[in-house]
Write a protein that binds this DNA or RNA. Structure first.
Lengths: 159, 159
DNA sequence: TTGCTCCTCACGTCACGTGAGGTGGC
DNA sequence: TTGCTCCTCACGTCACGTGAGGTGGC
């Protein structure tokens, strides 16, 4: 397969696994693993079986990596979050066919509850990081005092 | 070994591995693994070979867990950070014997550089989390709009 | 043919989890 | 003796890393 494999394959600009991995900063192994775990299915394939990813697939990958790297969640937790969001997306796609109000309420409630819990967790994590930052600043202050005594060049200081 | 094993073992209140693990919210396996990896050596032992941890050991463990959970560092990264801090602590302990100024400068510089890099990383992580929080808030806003249309009870809303 | 990307096994690694089997003091 | 904590192997697990060996289009 050539570099520009998918650039003109369809006219929908699907990307090969190598290109997607390179852009996201992961290996192709990670993408195959996420597929095996049911987190991210490539939405296309060549005749030979090469995976093809859409722009939406790439966005979903970004989302997965954000949850992994920023929040530190394991893949099972990420799978559950994606599942709730997927259900809400299904609901939107179904909107034309007027799904029963009870079903709408249930899924919106579910998404809102998840959102609330996630916001709380993010706020908690920010608090912990700010606490650690304060520790580091206190240490830096003590270092500067000791450095003054030893007579370190002031141009060496960072603020 | 009884529960109160170390309460009066010395008069320095050393703690058994189970008590330390329980307080820190990890398993005893984690503590043995950190010892094997050279991250945390218990500063005492019973005749039979049971590990005994001092208050300083417990504080070191807290520090390790903060770096692991809040910053998401792997154990090798944590080992390097502890090493730099340990070297600075040695320097302080050595202060009486007037170590050469060149040595002092080098280790203070090292600690200050590390501190600066860590502060930058913490700030970056806080920024990423705030970005994710903004995403969640935007989503919550859209959920509330949809909920209004479907006529969800306003008392169900979270802010 | 050479060079590139892709494929599927399949074993290795890191940071532990989880028994298996045994010891020692209340 | 029973119940508890501790000990050392040692195999299992999660999220990939890293070749091994092979295919297909420029």
């Amino acid at each position: 397969m050539g570099t520009g494999m998918s650039e003109h394959a369809g006219h929908e600009s699907l990307l090969g696994i190598g290109e997607v991995a390179r852009r996201a900063g992961v290996t192709t192994r990670t993408l195959r693993y996420y597929q095996e775990m049911g987190l991210l299915q490539p939405s296309g394939a060549t005749q030979r079986g090469n995976r093809l990813y859409s722009v939406l697939d790439v966005e979903r990958l970004q989302h997965i990596l954000e949850l992994r790297d920023v929040m530190g969640f394991d893949l099972e937790r990420i799978r559950l979050i994606l599942h709730t969001e997927d259900r809400l997306a299904e609901l939107r796609a179904e909107a034309q066919r007027q799904p029963p109000v009870s079903r709408r309420r249930e899924m919106i409630r579910e998404a809102m509850d998840l959102n609330t819990r996630l916001q709380a967790e993010v706020n908690e994590k920010i608090g912990l990081l700010q606490g650690y930052l304060a520790e580091l600043q206190a240490k830096a202050h003590r270092y500067r005092e000791v450095a003054d005594e030893v007579g370190l060049d002031p141009s060496d200081m960072r603020r």
